[in-house]
Amino acid sequence: MVTENEVLKALRQIMDPDLRKDIVSLGFVRDLKIEDGVVSFRIVLTTPACPVKDEMARQAERLVAELQGVTKVNVTMDAEVPRGRGVANNLELPNVKNIIAVSSGKGGVGKSTVAVNLAVSLALDGARVGLMDADVYGPNVPIMLGVKSYEPQILERKLVPTEAHGIKMISMALLAAPDQAMIMRGPMLHGVVRQFLSDVAWGELDYLIVDMPPGTGDVQLSLAQLVAVQGAVLVTTPQTVSTADVRRALKMFQTVGVPILGIIENMSYFTPPDMPEKRYYIFGEGGGKKLAEEYKVPFLGEIPLGIEVREAGDMGIPVVISSPGSPQAKSFKKVAEEVARQVSIEAMKQELVILTKSK
């Protein structure tokens, strides 16, 4: 009869490609049961968006099935997003595992569009996601999610966020008249960020995506000071004017101790619908990738320019839902998988140090 140790020894041959440790040492193998030659277990990965999930399941099934005495193998693939860095200076959000800042050096690069589609893509993969619109001066997230009305509700002295397309969301646009100008100085902005973090009933979240205002101002500093941000995702276009400003944003996050999860290049190229084989690099080519290589941070991917994205934003239905087969939607989903992967790597760093020291 096959033993538990034999099964675990076989599964140690499977390596996580990002964490570079075997799945047994990482604690991914759970609920192992052996009954009359039937071996059942779960493999709990660090993200529901893992691109090698199916391949890992096949490999586990094959390795265990080869053991003497095994008649059947039941592999269940699951995900449990690890909690990010420890609690920072002031606020504790015990139910939020990872806070991700989506930022840019300048406006007009599609940062909010990226934040919305990133959040919805992660939710489509099975994660619990919240989206905090911290772009106080230009809060457009409700439009992009199709939220046209909001009746504030209080639950246990906290504001209940609205829900759309599988994610929770809060924005200044929900709490003010549509044409009201947001005239705020530093202390007021700090107060808004604090309230959106601590006075909103976010519930259990794997990821809280924060859509930041462009630049390197008060909101960025407030977020870094108030909570432990797992990492920042920087959005740029290929052109030099955009990448020059992203350099400043990157340096700012590094200065305040926020890891850079990577760079996304938006509006990378345009492909005419009637000529899908052609690409026009309207804003230049490769600027985002070159910047990532220069600063030795991950390049998370390219998002092509397309009318589908603009139409989806105006309709209030993100392109990953309205046109899931479009090149733009496929790119957003791939980028979301890469962001989730980088978050898991960042979150697991401390555990990997412990594993290494124990050997």
Rank of each mutant, 00 (worst) to 15 (best):
E92N: 15
A119V: 02
L93S: 08
M144A: 09
G130W: 01
G86A: 15
M144P: 02
P94Q: 03
M132W: 00
N98G: 12
A123M: 07
D135S: 14
V116C: 03
A88I: 13
A101W: 09
G126M: 10
N95F: 10
G126Y: 01
V109P: 00
D125G: 15
E80Y: 09
I99K: 02
L91Y: 07
P142Q: 05
K106E: 06
A127L: 13
V141C: 06
E92L: 12
T113I: 02
A123W: 01
A119G: 05
V129Q: 04
P82T: 11
A127K: 11
N89D: 14
L131C: 06
N98T: 08
L145W: 04
L122Y: 00
G107D: 07
A127N: 08
N117F: 01
K97V: 04
G86W: 03
L93H: 10
D125V: 04
S121T: 08
S121V: 09
G86M: 11
A134K: 07
V116R: 00
N90T: 12
L131M: 12
A115N: 06
D125K: 15
A88C: 03
T113F: 01
K106L: 12
V109L: 01
G130V: 01
S104K: 10
P142C: 11
L122T: 02
A115P: 05
A119M: 05
P142Y: 02
N140A: 11
S103T: 15
D125S: 15
K111V: 07
A115H: 01
G84P: 13
V87Q: 14
S104H: 12
G138T: 08
S104G: 15
V102S: 02
L124M: 15
P82G: 09
V96N: 01
R83S: 14
N90V: 13
R128K: 15
V141Y: 02
S121Y: 12
L145M: 12
A119H: 03
E80S: 15
M144K: 02
I143F: 05
I99H: 00
A123T: 02
P82Y: 07
A115S: 15
L93E: 07
G108D: 08
V129A: 06
L91A: 07
G138L: 11
V87D: 14
A134N: 09
P82L: 10
E92H: 14
G105L: 11
V81C: 13
V116W: 00
P82W: 14
